[in-house]
Design a protein around this nucleic acid. Structure first.
Lengths: 122, 122
DNA sequence: CTCCTCTATTGACATCCATCGATATTGGGT
DNA sequence: ACCCAATATCGATGGATGTCAATAGAGGAG
C-alpha cells in the first residue's frame, strides 16, 4: 500500500529478449539449451512469483510500484524483494526507479519465448 | 540402450487434462491457482526433466522405453526414474507397462495448458 | 522354480531455496 | 544536516530437491 504518488504510469523500457532455444516438441533439447530454459521455467515454479507476475501482467498501467506488491501476496517485504530479483534475473520482469519508488513491469516478449518453447510447431 | 523389443510403438492412453487456471496475463492469479500452476512449471524447471520431455515429445513413435532414456541424459537409472515420476505426477507424461519395459509418452494437452497460462489472451 | 533384466524405491548426503528479522542503502522532505 | 519512507541486502534457519549406490519388486525366459 503506502502513500505512493501515481505519477506517470509509464511502462519501463522493455529489454531485448532472445529466443535461446527451439521448441521442446520439435527437436531434442541440447544440454546447454535445457539449462537456460530450465532456469526460466524455474522462475515460474513458485506460487508467489506467479502471482507477482500476474499482478504485473494484468496491470492496466503496465507498471506497478513495488510498494503495492507486498500486501497482495502476503509475504514480508524482503521476501517479495527476493522474488522480484529472481523474476528480473530471469528476464521476465523489468524495473525502473522513480524517486524513492521502484516500478516493475512484466516483459511480455519473455513470456512469448517460453510459450514458443512449449509450442508444437516451428 | 538395452535390447528392448520395439514391439508396438502404440501411444499410451492420454489422460484428461483440465485447464486449472486462466491466463497469467488476463486476470490476477488466485493463491490456490498459483499453487497448482507453480507445481507444473516447477516440473519444467530442471534441465534433465526438460531433456527427457523433449525426447518424448519429439519421438516419432509417440512413446519411448524407459530403458532408452537413461543414457541420453547421462544420469543414473534411479535419478532418471525419479525425474520421470515428477513429470508423471505433474501430468506432463504418461507411462504404460509392456512386459518388463515401461513406455513413456509426452502429454501434449498438458503442455497446451501451460501455454495457455502464458497466453496474452482469453 | 530359478535366474536375469528392467524399473521403482529407499536411505544418505550435499546443495539449493523460501522465508524472516535486522540492517544497509538510496532518495526526498523539512 | 537530519529524519523518514521505500528497497535491497545480509545472516540464519528449516525444508525441499537432485544425486547416487544399494535394494526391492515385477515379469519374462529357461
Amino acid at each position: 500500500m503506502s502513500t505512493r504518488i501515481r505519477s506517470l504510469p509509464v511502462i519501463p523500457t522493455q529489454p531485448n529478449v532472445e529466443r535461446c532455444c527451439a521448441s521442446l516438441q520439435v527437436s531434442t533439447l541440447a544440454a546447454d539449451e535445457a539449462e537456460v530454459l530450465a532456469r526460466r521455467f524455474a522462475a515460474l515454479g513458485d506460487p508467489v512469483r506467479l502471482r507477482l507476475l500476474s499482478i504485473l501482467a494484468t496491470s492496466g498501467d503496465g507498471a506497478v510500484c513495488a510498494c503495492d506488491l507486498v500486501e497482495p501476496v502476503g509475504k514480508s517485504q524482503s521476501t517479495v524483494s527476493h522474488h522480484l530479483k529472481i523474476l528480473r534475473e530471469a528476464g521476465l520482469v523489468t524495473s525502473e526507479r522513480r524517486g524513492t519508488n521502484i516500478w516493475y513491469a512484466a516483459v511480455p516478449a519473455a513470456l512469448e519465448v517460453l510459450r514458443g518453447a512449449l509450442s508444437p510447431v516451428e
